[in-house]
């Protein structure tokens, strides 16, 4: 893989829900076509570390990144204006493995939803289950529909869609699908992995605090056990962020 950190032009910065922003950034020399599940490492003025953000959508010369304001870095990003330049290292990591002619169920929880949009675009008629805490945080439902997905929305408090968890829906639909791809909080991923175990293949996208973003500094460790391999400390930025759920030890 060839890496390049390049200047992108911020084309759009829209607030799409409470504290959640959608960027479109453009660069005519995108170093490689992104795969779904990969991420971008965004340089933020005044910060030592870059901010890893999943690729929500991509084409030949643009990336869409959807992020939630958490701390100072994402706050600065949320205030940037279209026309400004931003340096981004992308695409990084190992994305979802999507195969033709399979029925996919894509599951996103909270700010884990964005990467599932680009993933949905690679699948034929996927079922997309998204879960949010409350209606003010619901994002990307129209985008999923436009991508041809069947969508099921859940909220923890019942303020929009089904009152309940994504796992309740998954259990009902398990018979109709071939594979699951999921991104979201660890307890959600663990529950999904438990439901899928022995029935359907499940891939999960993990988060870990990062330094270099390319596999050199070993700070983004995750204990994994590859099929037929030895247990080892893998790097989420390089071996992940997407793993086969059976490879991962979900301890917090």
């Amino acid at each position: 893989m060839k890496y390049d950190s390049q200047l992108f032009k911020l084309k759009k910065n829209d607030r799409i829900a409470d504290g959640i922003y959608s960027w479109v950034v453009e660069n005519d020399n995108l170093p490689g076509l992104a795969r779904c599940g990969q991420f971008a490492n965004v340089k933020v003025e005044g910060k030592t570390l870059r901010r890893p953000i999943s690729i929500c959508d991509a084409d030949d010369n643009s990336l869409r990144l959807v992020f939630q304001v958490k701390g100072e870095g994402t706050e600065i990003m949320s205030k940037m204006k279209p026309g400004e330049e931003v340096e981004i290292l992308a695409p990084l990591g190992h994305g979802f493995d999507i195969q033709k002619d399979k029925k996919y169920c894509l599951i996103g929880g909270g700010i884990g939803v964005p990467p599932m949009l680009f993933t949905a675009k690679q699948c034929d008629n996927p079922l997309v289950i998204t879960g949010f805490r409350t209606k003010d945080l619901v994002i990307l439902q129209d985008d999923f529909k436009a991508a041809g997905a069947e969508t099921v929305l859940t909220t923890d408090d019942g303020s929009d869609g089904i009152h309940g968890f994504v796992t309740d829906v998954l259990k009902e639909k398990l018979g109709e699908i071939d594979e699951v791809c999921a991104c979201g909080p660890i307890p959600m991923l663990r529950a999904i992995a438990d439901i899928c175990r022995g029935k359907v293949r499940c891939q999960v996208s993990l988060e870990e605090r990062m330094g270099c973003g390319i596999g050199a500094c070993l700070v983004c460790a995750c204990k994994t056990k590859p099929k037929d391999g030895e247990e080892f400390m893998s790097q989420v930025c390089r071996h992940g962020p997407v793993y086969d759920a059976e490879e991962v030890f979900f301890d917090e």
Binding site: L218, V219, C220, A221, F232, M233
Partner: peptide
């Protein structure tokens, strides 16, 4: 094998690491 994660934290003008 190194330490369990998280192994890095950001701070003003720098980082802490414990790989």
């Amino acid at each position: 094998e190194g330490n369990p994660p998280p192994r890095i934290a950001e701070t003003e003008g720098g980082i802490l690491n414990a790989v």
